[in-house]
Design a protein around this nucleic acid. Structure first.
Length: 435
DNA sequence: TTTTGAGTTGTTCGA
DNA sequence: GTCGAACAACTCAAA
């Protein structure tokens, strides 16, 4: 056996199967110490019953149990600033290399830079792997090397560049777990130790979702049906492999689901190349819009008391479950930005707080799409009619009755704003800003 | 360099 | 009820 250990650092890849970085660590020749670090800087802004923290914690415990039961190995869980945690590990173990999967969000990039600096100062190798996407950053670009900012040509290039045998190959770790370090008493933490409690909101299991994907294209627009994949949280935290999902998408005659996966990578590369879009409109003119930003109206929107039943149903679904149907997300976003003239950043922040499947790149990208300010965005005069959307997508009021049972009684609030007036007001304000 | 065709998800209006 | 045009130009991607 070689002297020294390799570390595999889990972040947004909480699975033991088909994991690129874990596979390479296990093949490194050194015994592998798998770790996860709860970062107080991320946790401090979250409510104590945050569902995502519960989910991450639960998945880590599952991995610990599986490793312990089948391989008599374990996973170390820490709570602290990652740099400090690594300093402590280095001080107490002979670490030769650290393996991890790439994370493209601005905070993560910055964190990883610091870890990289620390490790190189100690002569420890730091290896990072592409794992959460099929094509990352600069792999799908225009012929001149610049990033695409229009979805359709990006999607076409993505598909034509895809070589399933090469890009969807599984990293099968199954037979390598005996190479995990055989160390006793690896640290563990309860939710309580982290200052959290169990959330009432649970992430739906992905096996249910996978069985429904065949009908995705036909059913996904109807919020009363279980037509969407519900895979967002699993993609967010890596509890399912993107390669497995792309294979599923390719196997279907209908490419709608595959196209959604490509949207995810489209927005990820946009965030990578244009990190300013987290705070600024991609199209700068749109930051001249004079938002009304009325706090009371924002509150009605958040709590599902707008008087528009489909908008309210969506917001109540979000508040109750941490999920909102895609069709309804578009409607509530359009309503906030255009009917109420509230800054898309306010809505983006609220979704970020509530959505189990929150993904910075998609959230920012789609909010900017809805407000009209983003890459390949909806034209500003495209304003959803909240009543027409009911007739088109929830004609029988099944979804509405589920979330807004009082919608046809006197207990239900009056419409907070007249559609026709709000539409014209929006067009006027947008026009004034964009001229 | 210039030209050409195209661009996630909608609504309204008038024939 | 149905259909096509207007909504507003503009910018992007590729030939």
């Amino acid at each position: 056996m070689t002297d020294g250990l390799s570390i595999f650092w889990f972040r947004r890849d909480l699975r033991l199967e088909d994991n690129a970085g874990l596979f390479s660590a296990l093949e490194s020749g050194c015994p592998v110490l798998p770790i996860f670090i709860f970062d107080p800087e991320i946790l401090e802004s979250l409510p104590e019953d945050d569902a995502r923290v519960s989910f991450i914690h639960q998945k880590l415990q599952h991995m610990r149990e599986k490793l312990s039961r089948n391989y008599q190995r374990s996973l170390a869980i820490y709570h602290g600033n990652p740099v400090t945690v690594f300093k402590n590990i280095i001080a107490s173990h002979p670490i030769k290399a650290v393996y991890t999967n790439e994370d493209y969000e601005p905070y993560a990039r910055n964190r990883d830079k610091k870890i990289d600096d620390l490790l190189s100062s100690q002569n420890i190798d730091f290896y990072t792997f592409k794992d959460q996407v099929v094509f990352a950053k600069n792999e799908i670009t225009k012929d001149d090397g610049n990033p695409y900012v229009v979805y359709t040509p990006f999607m076409r290039k993505w598909k034509s560049n895809l070589n399933p045998a090469k890009h969807l190959n599984q990293f099968d770790c199954q037979n390598l777990f005996h190479k995990l370090a055989d160390l006793a008493d690896l640290p563990n933490l309860s939710l309580q130790d982290l200052g959290f409690i169990h959330s009432k909101i649970l992430v739906p299991d992905y096996h249910i979702a996978l069985s429904l994907l065949d009908k995705y294209g036909e059913t996904r627009d109807y919020p009363a049906l279980s037509g969407t994949s519900r895979l967002g949280p699993h993609l967010r935290f890596g509890t399912i492999s993107i390669r497995q999902l792309v294979k599923k998408g390719l196997a279907s005659k209908d490419e709608t689901f595959l196209n959604e996966l490509i949207w995810r990578e489209f927005f990820m590369q946009i965030l990578w190349h244009f990190p300013r879009t987290v705070h600024e409109s991609f199209k700068k003119k749109y930051d001249r819009i004079v938002w009304r930003n009325n706090e009371e109206e924002f509150d009605k929107w958040k709590t599902g008391q707008t008087g528009y039943a489909l908008v309210d149903a969506g917001m109540r679904e979000l508040n109750t479950t941490g999920y909102m149907h895609n069709r309804v997300r578009m409607l509530v976003a359009s309503f906030l930005c255009k009917h109420l003239l509230i800054d898309w950043r306010w809505g983006e922040a609220y979704f970020a707080e509530k959505l189990l499947d929150f993904e910075l790149s998609s959230n920012v990208g789609n909010w900017q799409w809805a407000s009209g300010s983003g890459v390949d965005a909806a034209p500003y005069f495209r304003i959803f009619n909240p009543m027409t959307q009911i007739e088109k997508f929830d004609k029988q009021r099944v979804y509405i009755k589920k979330w807004v049972p009082e919608f046809d009684t006197s207990d239900y609030p009056e419409k907070m704003v007249d559609h026709k007036m709000a539409r014209e007001r929006c067009l006027t304000v947008y026009k004034a800003a964009l001229n």
